[in-house]
Design a binder for these strands. Structure first.
Length: 250
DNA sequence: AACAGAGCCAACCGCAGAGAG
DNA sequence: ACTCTCTGCGGTTGGCTCTGT
């Protein structure tokens, strides 16, 4: 399904990522953040280019990502957003927490596009190119969201928003149950284990998950700290051990 | 069972924007 | 004002899997 691994003329590895590489990248980013993607591979002991590392992290290793299993609601939202925004996949991804632009793009081309009325789609693109498509007329949720500094891929795994699974410490108490559920679900989906997710629902009622744990400066200086959930059994451990737990279990 | 073509998705590439010097 | 570096977006591709013959 993916390109076979190979080394280019500069000794940089390309193609599919191994589990060992994933572990190295995940461990490094969780511990030190990703302030400089160019230097990161060398520091993390990877033979990849920074761009490749960034892509792997953003599209696959980032916490709380969902893979596949699009709900009808998500598909409707993608169609709606695409009609309004065209191929602005990063903007569309902002409206679907846990989904990446690449994932949505693939899903669009492989599943949604063919099911849509062709003329509808063309009309949407035409509309985008017209002078009438002004900032003030765009749906409220998109106004001002085109700035690169707000793209979900830059800070989504750390940014606390109302629709995300990351919350600030002050806000977590109101939504703790749903947060725990959605975050735990993400963990389980990452491990391709629906069964585990179902059984872990029982753990939810037994307060298996603790309050969120704040990870400082994991995404560089400009991003807010990240919030993760840990089982009660590990919350008394040190910061480093908590990171180790996350590295092992994400 | 063997083959061919289509579907799918992870990963690559080129380009452009932003910021620093 | 210009150049350089870094980062991220969107289009494209390679190759595995699925489906039909």
């Amino acid at each position: 399904m993916v390109r076979s691994p190979f080394y280019d003329k500069n000794g940089v590895k390309k193609g599919a990522w191994s589990k060992e590489e994933d572990h190295k990248l995940r461990t490094y980013v969780l511990r030190h953040g990703h302030a400089n993607w160019r230097q990161l591979p060398q520091l993390a002991g990877l033979a990849r280019c920074g761009k490749s590392c960034r892509l792997r992290w953003m599209n696959y290793l980032r916490p709380n990502l969902k893979h596949g299993n699009y709900t009808p609601e998500e598909e409707q939202l993608i169609i709606k957003c695409h009609r309004q925004l065209g191929n602005k996949w990063s903007l569309i991804a902002e409206k679907l927490p846990g989904r990446t632009d690449n994932d949505i793009k693939n899903h669009w081309h492989s599943h949604l596009k063919k099911n849509l009325n062709q003329s509808d789609a063309e009309e949407g693109v035409k509309y985008l190119k017209t002078a009438e498509y002004k900032e003030s007329e765009r749906p409220r949720e998109f106004v001002g969201s085109e700035s690169r500094s707000h793209h979900i891929l830059e800070s989504s795994w750390a940014r606390p928003t109302s629709s995300d699974t990351c919350y600030t410490q002050e806000n977590h108490s109101d939504s703790s149950v749903s947060l725990q559920q959605s975050t735990l679900k993400s963990y389980r989906e990452d491990q391709d284990s629906v069964a585990s997710w179902e059984t872990s629902q029982e753990l939810m009622t037994s307060e298996f998950w603790s309050r969120p744990f704040l990870v400082e400066n994991t995404c560089g200086l400009d991003t807010p700290p990240s919030m993760f959930w840990y089982p009660y059994e590990v919350t008394d451990l040190s910061h480093d051990l908590l990171l180790d737990w996350q590295i092992q279990n994400c």
